[in-house]
């Protein structure tokens, strides 16, 4: 097993004719993901790397029955793309797009929640179940199938940790990038619950960063509900307050959201917190015995 995506995933790509959409469609196909359709308004009838393109998500759903969508649509149009996927009944929507206005995401979040869909992101690298399906922009070759579930707010930092695991001979069940924005569809807690319930996940890696209090909330959840070992890493120990560190959500504001607070909360919940990304692999090895 795994969480969220697997061999049965039938993927729709929104924004498939764009530069990013087209490039990553090729990459995902190469990895073995079943990309069944693409959508670009006005491009129906075309094919991108052999994938049929439709004008609307509803048309694509009727013709190809996808069960997940990935969005590579520019920020001004991405909320609309999410609404279209929700209204077409797609249960899983992954939004890669960076730079969506926060107040739009407040509305999007409410809309998605009310309709029972699962949104991953935005501003995320997507997710991958190694050997089964890659629904995102991460390099596939750094992963290998195995027992460790990875959940992270970051992109390349996740690759760094996953690469360290793989080089240590430790594979991953699923790696989920939940995104670096202040408002994201899926939180640490949501993914922790999935990993706790997944029989093939034996240990969990949580990669957080400064800003917000999601790591603290995750720590509380871990203490109450997670019995599997959890190893953490928090980026931004050296980040100054009041400055946005790249990610819209990575900012220490009002003295809240520091790395020190997050590390303390996680350690208090029994999480082993690594000092550097490569150490995550060492701690996981110990945890797995």
């Amino acid at each position: 097993m795994s969480v969220l995506v697997n061999r049965e995933t039938r993927l729709l790509v929104q924004g498939i004719t764009g530069r990013e959409g087209s490039f990553h469609t090729a990459q995902m196909l190469e990895y073995g993901t079943h990309v069944v359709a693409g959508v670009t308004p006005g491009a129906a009838g075309r094919e991108v790397h052999g994938v049929p393109v439709f004008n609307t998500v509803a048309d694509a759903v009727a013709a190809t029955a996808p069960n997940a969508s990935i969005i590579y649509v520019p920020a001004p149009f991405a909320p609309d793309a999410i609404y279209e996927a929700v209204d077409a009944g797609l249960p899983l929507i992954v939004c890669i797009t960076e730079g969506i206005p926060t107040l739009e995401m407040v509305k999007v979040y409410q809309y998605v929640q009310a309709r029972g869909c699962r949104l991953i992101g935005p501003n995320c690298p997507g997710l991958i179940t190694p050997g089964q399906a890659k629904v995102g922009i991460m390099p596939g070759y750094i992963h290998r199938p195995g027992p460790v579930g990875v959940v992270s707010r970051s992109g390349t930092l996740t690759y760094e940790v996953v690469w360290a695991l793989t080089q240590a001979g430790i594979g991953q069940s699923t790696a989920v990038g939940i995104g670096g924005d202040p408002i994201i569809g899926t939180s640490f807690i949501d993914v922790l619950a999935m990993f706790q319930d997944d029989p093939e996940t034996e240990a969990i890696v949580l990669i957080g960063e400064i800003g917000g209090t999601d790591e603290e909330a995750a720590a509380g959840y871990i203490r109450e509900h997670v019995t599997k070992p959890v190893v953490g890493f928090i980026a931004g120990r050296t980040a100054p307050p009041g400055k946005r560190m790249g990610h819209a959500g990575a900012i220490i504001s009002g003295g809240q959201g520091t790395a020190a607070e997050k590390i303390a909360a996680l350690e208090a919940a029994g999480v082993l917190v690594a000092e550097r990304p490569a150490q995550v692999a060492e701690l996981i090895r110990k945890a797995l015995g």
Partner: peptide, 21 residues
């Protein structure tokens, strides 16, 4: 560095080994 999280982690590693970003 490429990526915000990795950039922060790189700064932290510099500090960890006695330097300052």
């Amino acid at each position: 560095v490429n990526g915000a999280g990795l950039s922060m982690a790189t700064m932290d590693a510099v500090k960890l080994y006695g330097g300052a970003p």
